[in-house]
Each structure stands twice: as structure tokens, then as C-alpha cells.
Amino acid sequence: MGYTLNFAAVWRSFDDLLLGLGLSLVLAFGAILMGAVIGLGVAFALMAKNRLVKRPAAIYVSIIRNTPILVLVLFTYFALPQLGVRLGKIESFVFTLAVYSGAYLAEVFRSGLLSIPPGLREAGLAIGLTETQIRTSIIAPLMFRNILPSLSSTIISLFKDTSLAAAIAVPELTFETRKINVETFRVIETWMVASCLYVFTCSTLAALMRALERRLALPR
């Protein structure tokens, strides 16, 4: 097929790829931080007894989980301005990904909360702790440990989802890759390097989360 690999052109633009990767990470972490706040609130709402609180939360989770994220991204960026909500590309994308991740994180938090035996709350009550003290000293640290494995996979898949920002021309890794591809025509090399960057970042994130898990593991 007469195609010889030549990475020189890609290396010349490697800085752009790294900047793109940096922006991808920023998008992911911005979204996760906001998404965690949404997710925690929704998780409590999902477990509420009051139907007026529970139903809306369940509907939100169901809608987000069953709608393609690309549609959500385009909707926020192109359709919301019609309603007067005009956001910049990056803000718009981070906002969408936060709302999107909120639904997934809510499920993560909810199962984390459910896995804590109710007796621990009672033991806290019995020594005179208030509900707030129980939440901060007992429930939160235990839930955080419980959810680390599923939190890790949610973070990684959100990081991968940042590639969709390319669809609204946010200059993150996928967008930069496509640009270099079009400019240099070193098609195979460009996509190879880009995928390797994604794979490398994902495995680094996974390793970091595993290290955190080991650090926080309870002796037994």
C-alpha cells in the first residue's frame, strides 16, 4: 500500500496536542466538580421519602441517561441561546458535561450511601452526635471509600466524553488532532499519537485512583 510512517510532522505539532490534552483535563475536572455537587444533591433526593422530591430527581436521571451526550452538547450551545441563555463554547460544554455527569454520579453516590449499614448512624446517635456530625464524621468518609472504584470509571468515561467538545470547536485534544490531520495529511500517525495520549491519560487516572483506594483501604 506504499504508506511509510513519518512522525516528523506530528512531532512538530506535538505542543498543540499537549495543550489540547491539558484543556481536555480541565474540561473534565471542571465538569466533575460541578457534577459531584449536583450528583450528591440528586442522590439525597432519590432517597427521599417525599415523592415531590424523589420523582423530579428520578426523571432527571432517566432523561440524562437515555439521551446522547452529543445531542445535549449541541442543545446547550445552539438551542439555549434561543431562550436567551448565551454561553461561551467552553462554559457551555463544561455546563453540559456537569449536568450529564450529575446523573451518573447521583447513581454512584446513591449506591455508596445504601451500602452503609444503618446501625452506624444509630451508633452515632446513641453517643449523642447530631445528624450533621454523623454525616461528616461517619457517612461521608465511608461513602467516599465505598464509591472509589465506580467513581474511578465515571471519571475516566467523563474524560473521554470531553472529546465531544470538538463538535462545537473547543480546541481540546480531538479537535487539535483533526486539525493536524487536515493540515499535514499524516493521517495514521496523527490518530495513533492522539489515541496513545488518551489511553495513557486514562490509565494514569486509573492508576491514581487505585493508589488512592489503596491508601484509604481499611486494615483488616
Binding site: P117, G119, L120, E122, A123, G124, L125, A126, I127, G128, L129, T130, E131, S137, I138, P141, L142, R145, L218
Partner: peptide
């Protein structure tokens, strides 16, 4: 009020069937 109940709970100590030690 919850604060008052928390204080009153501390008047009694309780040991449970399932121990309920805080695992962390």
C-alpha cells in the same frame, strides 16, 4: 429539637447486637 435530643441520648449509653463500630 434535634440538639436537645442528641444531648439526652448521651445520658444513656447503648451497646448494639451488631456492635456498629465505625469501620474507618
Amino acid at each position: 429539637r434535634e440538639k436537645e435530643i442528641a444531648r439526652q441520648r448521651a445520658l444513656t449509653g447503648m451497646a448494639f447486637q451488631q456492635f456498629n463500630l465505625f469501620p474507618h
